[in-house]
């Protein structure tokens, strides 16, 4: 086990290093420089331009800039945004909880409903319920989520008035950002009704972002359940006279959770891509919108380090999933 862990860890370092090189190169390949974008429409003479470039350290040769960047990373310094002057870490930590809260809500929704639907579909294999559910899940999997978000917003929020149009909470609630998670902060604030209001704001974006993971998890759970139900020990359990519900939920589900775990890992990247679109539609103040805007503004430190932080997150989540997977299923550990 230890050897497996070390081997996996050893693979992380070069990947991380590669990500720094890739983001550094990508942002510098984009035409236009941050000073031009910053100055906008105003006239900028070449000397002022050169001075501004020097102030930002962009007059150095590229390899120097890269080494300086790595040195900065070693010291744990993520630099300051060119646009706002705020430290990248501070901006990331204010925006990331919003994305994380949305993503967690989406995954929770997808996990609970997806597993439930998958189990039922497997138990009632080939029934009309199974067919409809699988049809729906393939539709969900095929959904252009920006369109789905717009449609739900216009139907549910604007048309029916069931949920708020956008934002994280009614701004008349004065919520101190202790954790950055609105659901937690609203509970801490002791303002009447704030928690429910935050929940109402969260529900629609979470449904939109959770649609694809929900579809994937439902399908995976169904097929995993089908496999498990064929296994000998289930038959044995049934033969021993255990109640069907107990067989399914205690024996079957535990094993069926393995693929669901994989999906969690696989979906982190997809979820973050989806978050970019969901955040755009619901004016959700998260990192997706922040990064897209930073690319447009050529805000080098934000793009480099913001993407780096996300990549680190993806790598870590996948690593953790690998480990859990190895723990749960020893066959895989040895196969590698």
């Amino acid at each position: 086990m230890l050897a497996f862990l070390l081997r996996r860890l050893g693979l992380l370092l070069p990947t991380f290093f590669g990500v720094t090189l890739l983001t550094f190169a990508l942002i510098r390949l984009i035409p236009g420089d941050p000073v031009e974008v910053m100055m906008g429409e105003r006239h900028l003479d070449p000397q002022a331009h050169a001075e501004a470039m020097q102030r930002l350290g962009l007059d150095q040769p590229l390899h120097r800039q890269y080494l300086a960047y790595l040195g900065q990373l070693m010291r744990g310094d993520l630099g300051q945004s060119f646009r706002s002057g705020e430290s990248v870490w501070a901006e990331f930590t204010t925006l990331f909880p919003a994305t994380l809260e949305l993503a967690c809500a989406a995954l929770l929704l997808a996990g609970v409903l997806g597993v439930l639907a998958g189990v039922i579909a497997a138990l009632k294999r080939d029934s009309w319920f199974d067919r409809v559910l699988m049809g729906l899940s393939l539709t969900g999997y095929s959904m252009p989520i920006f369109w789905w978000g717009l449609m739900l917003q216009i139907l549910v929020s604007v048309g029916l008035g069931w949920t708020p149009v956008s934002g994280r909470i009614d701004l008349l609630y004065d919520i101190e950002p202790h954790t950055g998670f609105m659901l937690v902060d609203s509970l801490l604030s002791e303002e009447d009704g704030a928690f429910l209001d935050a929940l109402r704001h969260l529900i629609l974006p979470a449904i939109v972002l959770g649609t694809i993971p929900l579809a994937v998890i439902a399908r995976m759970t169904r097929s995993a359940m089908l496999e498990v139900l064929r296994e000998d020990y289930i038959r044995t359990a049934r033969a021993k006279g255990l109640s069907p519900a107990r067989v399914v939920f205690v024996h079957g589900l535990r094993n069926a959770l393995i693929p669901v775990l994989t999906v969690f890992g696989l979906q982190v990247g997809t979820l973050l891509s989806g978050a970019v679109l969901t955040e755009t539609i619901f004016s959700w103040p998260g990192i997706g919108k922040w990064l897209i805007e930073s690319i447009a503004a050529r805000d080098y430190p934000v793009v480099q380090n913001g993407i780096l932080l996300i990549a680190a997150l993806v790598i870590l989540v996948n690593f953790t999933v690998d480990l859990l997977y190895g723990l749960v299923n020893p066959r895989i550990r040895h196969a590698r």
């Binding site: 890739l22 891509s273 970019v276 897209i292 990549a311």
Partner: peptide
Amino acid sequence: DVMLALPALLLAVA
């Protein structure tokens, strides 16, 4: 691995 670590849409946008 490096490419997979970046969210696909962000990489495409870049």
